[in-house]
Amino acid sequence: KKKPLTQEQLEDARRLKAIYEKKKNELGLSQESVADKMGMGQSGVGALFNGINALNAYNAALLAKILKVSVEEFSP
Rank of each mutant, 00 (worst) to 15 (best):
M40F: 07
N56D: 14
A54I: 03
E8Q: 09
Y58I: 12
G39D: 09
E11R: 07
F74Y: 06
S33C: 11
G28Q: 09
L5W: 03
Y58R: 15
P76D: 06
Q31A: 11
F74I: 14
G28C: 09
Q31D: 12
R15Y: 01
G28I: 03
Q42G: 11
K68C: 09
A47H: 10
G51D: 06
M40H: 04
G28N: 12
Q42D: 05
N53W: 06
A61P: 07
A35Y: 01
G44W: 07
K22L: 11
L48N: 07
G44D: 15
N56W: 03
G51N: 05
P4G: 14
G41C: 15
P76C: 08
E72M: 10
L62V: 11
Q42K: 15
L10M: 13
K17L: 09
A18G: 10
A60V: 01
E72L: 08
A54N: 07
A35F: 00
S30V: 05
F49A: 07
G41I: 11
N53D: 15
K37P: 02
L27P: 04
K17D: 02
K1A: 08
A13E: 07
D12M: 09
D36V: 14
K17N: 06
N25P: 04
S43Y: 12
S43C: 10
M38A: 06
L63Q: 05
L27W: 01
L29F: 05
R15E: 00
Y20Q: 02
N59R: 04
N50A: 09
Y58K: 15
Q7L: 04
I66M: 09
N59W: 06
F49Q: 05
M40N: 06
V69H: 08
T6V: 03
L62H: 09
A47Y: 08
G51V: 00
E73R: 04
S43Q: 14
M40K: 02
N59L: 07
K22F: 06
A60Q: 00
I52H: 13
P76F: 11
D36Y: 11
K17C: 08
L55F: 04
R14H: 09
A47M: 10
R15T: 01
A18I: 09
L67Y: 01
E72P: 08
K37Y: 13
S75I: 00
A61E: 14
P76Q: 04
A57K: 14
S30K: 05
S75K: 03
L48K: 04
G39F: 03
L55T: 01
R15F: 00
V34Q: 03
Q9W: 02
L63W: 01
S70F: 08
N53L: 10
A35Q: 03
R15V: 00
A54Q: 07
E8D: 10
S30L: 02
S75F: 00
K2E: 13
L16I: 04
E21C: 10
R14Y: 07
A13V: 01
A64I: 00
K37R: 13
E72I: 06
S75T: 01
K65I: 00
N53M: 12
G44C: 13
S30P: 01
K65P: 06
F74Q: 05
K17M: 08
K2Y: 12
L16V: 08
A18P: 01
L63F: 11
N53G: 06
V69E: 04
E73L: 00
P4Q: 14
N59V: 07
D36K: 15
K23H: 02
P4F: 13
P76S: 03
K3V: 12
A18W: 07
A60N: 08
N50I: 00
N59P: 02
E26S: 11
K22A: 13
L10H: 09
I66F: 04
L10N: 06
L10V: 12
S75Y: 04
A35P: 03
A61C: 11
R14T: 08
L55P: 04
L5Y: 05
L55S: 01
K3S: 13
K68Y: 01
L67C: 03
V71S: 06
V45W: 00
A64S: 10
G46L: 15
L10P: 04
L5F: 06
V45F: 01
L55E: 05
L63I: 10
K37C: 08
A18S: 12
E26H: 09
V69C: 14
N50S: 09
L48E: 04
G51R: 00
L62D: 11
A57V: 12
A61H: 13
K2S: 12
M40E: 05
G44Q: 15
A13S: 09
S43P: 10
F49S: 04
V45N: 03
V34P: 01
N56C: 06
G41M: 12
M38P: 02
E8G: 07
S70M: 01
Y58F: 11
N53P: 03
F74K: 05
T6A: 06
S75R: 03
L5H: 04
A57F: 11
E11T: 07
F49P: 06
I52Y: 12
Q9D: 05
V71Q: 07
E26F: 08
T6N: 11
V71Y: 00
L55A: 03
L48S: 03
K24S: 05
V69P: 11
G46Q: 15
K2I: 12
S30M: 02
Q42P: 15
Q42R: 13
L10C: 01
I66S: 09
L16G: 03
G44S: 14
A64D: 04
D36L: 13
S70D: 14
E26W: 07
L63M: 12
A57L: 10
N50K: 07
A60D: 02
G28V: 06
L29K: 02
E73Q: 08
F74C: 02
T6H: 09
K68A: 08
E11V: 07
F49V: 06
Q31P: 15
L16Y: 03
T6K: 09
P76Y: 07
T6P: 07
K23T: 02
F74V: 04
N56V: 02
K24W: 00
K2L: 11
E8H: 05
K17A: 05
Y20W: 13
L16S: 04
L62Q: 15
N25I: 13
I52N: 11
M40P: 02
A64F: 00
A18Q: 12
E8A: 07
E32M: 11
G41D: 15
I52S: 12
S30W: 00
L27I: 07
A54R: 05
A54C: 09
N56T: 13
A54S: 09
E73F: 04
N59S: 12
A61Y: 09
G51S: 01
S70T: 09
M38I: 09
M38F: 01
A47G: 10
L48F: 05
F74W: 01
S43F: 07
I19D: 01
L48I: 11
G44I: 07
R15A: 02
T6F: 00
R15I: 02
A13W: 00
E8K: 04
K1C: 09
N59A: 07
I52T: 14
Q42E: 15
V34F: 04
P76N: 04
I52V: 13
F74L: 06
A35D: 03
L62F: 06
L16A: 04
F49M: 13
D12E: 09
D12P: 01
F74H: 01
V45S: 03
A54F: 03
G41L: 13
K68I: 00
A64R: 04
A64V: 00
G51P: 06
N25G: 14
I66G: 07
K68H: 13
Y58E: 15
N53T: 15
Y20F: 13
E11P: 01
G39V: 04
S75N: 06
N25H: 13
K24T: 04
M38S: 06
A18F: 09
E8T: 06
A61R: 14
K2Q: 12
A54L: 01
P76H: 08
A35K: 04
A18K: 11
Y58C: 12
L48H: 01
E72T: 12
A35S: 08
I52C: 11
V69G: 06
L29N: 02
F74G: 02
K1L: 07
A47C: 10
N53E: 15
K65S: 10
V69M: 00
A54H: 06
L67M: 07
A60L: 00
A57Y: 12
A64H: 06
Y20G: 04
